[in-house]
Design a protein around this nucleic acid. Structure first.
Length: 271
DNA sequence: ATGCGGACCTGTTAGC
DNA sequence: TGCTAACAGGTCCGCA
């Protein structure tokens, strides 16, 4: 479900109710997520003040003086702000209860999400240590992308979806940014010249920024922490449009599969 | 070192 | 209408 814009939208939604507040209780109902929820997590978090809610790649980082908790939404996770007395429903796997009575509730039908402890040096956590630059950071440039692809035969779409290359680019926005950059998704990463890579880096940045502004993309069931859908779906140019007309040239949008993920592209506009 | 397929799950949709 | 298969926004891991 969530890519970077949806995670960022979630972060912005939950930050106001968490930042500066003390965790009175962490209620874990289901520990079998992508990785088991650590047994000492409740103990580590109870009584701690969340001083900051940050995002790294698609991880939400809840920072306290005792250490950092990491939340990942996986494919189907969401975090909602609910009332203390609202009854948990199916797939509501944990609650973060803060002073004042607000509850941030995590729901994830597929359980590909996670809740982990990253201690006092989260950047050194194995899941974060190898991540590439944030797409919104100054380190993410066309030149960087070009250098990272040199000598590589891997398809450019899989290259930009590799979190070690750049963090947080998922399937929807990989498809969209490649279309906007006019680059064929199956082109080898090492066979794209610097100017086109610069265009691609710019489009990745732009499409993610636009999607954040729209509150993310709701394909079927994504909702922000305030229960509102994301409105970026209307702006999608290729994702999910197989067989429809390219909005740029009128040819049919094609569908293929790369690395078990759906790829959409226009063979006229993308080379 | 790189690349590929499988694995982890449930819910919804497409196809027969 | 009902059953089954395929597919879905992620990403790690093990093997070739």
């Amino acid at each position: 479900m969530p890519e970077l814009p949806e995670v960022e939208t979630t972060r912005r939604g939950i930050a106001p109710v968490l930042e500066g507040h003390r965790i009175t209780e962490l209620i874990v109902r289901e520990r079998r997520l992508r990785w088991p929820v650590p047994i000492d997590l409740e103990e580590n978090l109870r009584g701690q003040v969340i001083h900051h809610v940050e995002r790294r790649a698609k991880y939400l980082l809840l920072k306290t003086a005792n250490g950092t908790a990491m939340v990942h939404l996986g494919m189907s996770g969401s975090m909602r702000i609910v009332d203390k007395y609202s009854a948990p429903e199916v797939h509501d796997h944990f609650d973060i209860v803060v002073d004042g009575g607000d509850v941030v509730r995590f729901n994830d039908p597929r359980r590909f999400g996670s809740l982990l402890w990253a201690g006092l040096t989260p950047a050194e956590h194995p899941l974060l240590a190898e991540l590439g630059p944030e797409p919104f950071s100054n380190d993410f440039t066309g030149k960087y992308l070009w250098q990272s692809g040199r000598g590589r035969k891997v398809a450019i779409k899989q290259h930009v979806m590799n979190s070690k290359i750049v963090a947080g680019v998922g399937n929807i926005y990989a498809n969209e940014s490649l279309f906007r950059a006019g680059i064929h998704p199956k082109r080898a990463a090492g066979r794209i010249a610097l100017p086109r890579m610069t265009k691609l880096a710019g489009e990745i940045h732009a499409v993610l920024a636009e999607a954040v502004r729209q509150g993310g993309t709701t394909l079927r069931d994504y909702r922000g922490s305030d229960d509102k859908p994301g409105y970026f779906r209307q702006k999608l140019l290729v994702y999910g449009r197989a067989g429809e007309a390219c909005k740029q040239c009128g040819d049919l949008i094609r569908h293929t599969v790369q690395g078990q993920r759906a790829t959409y592209y226009c063979s006229t506009c993308q080379r």
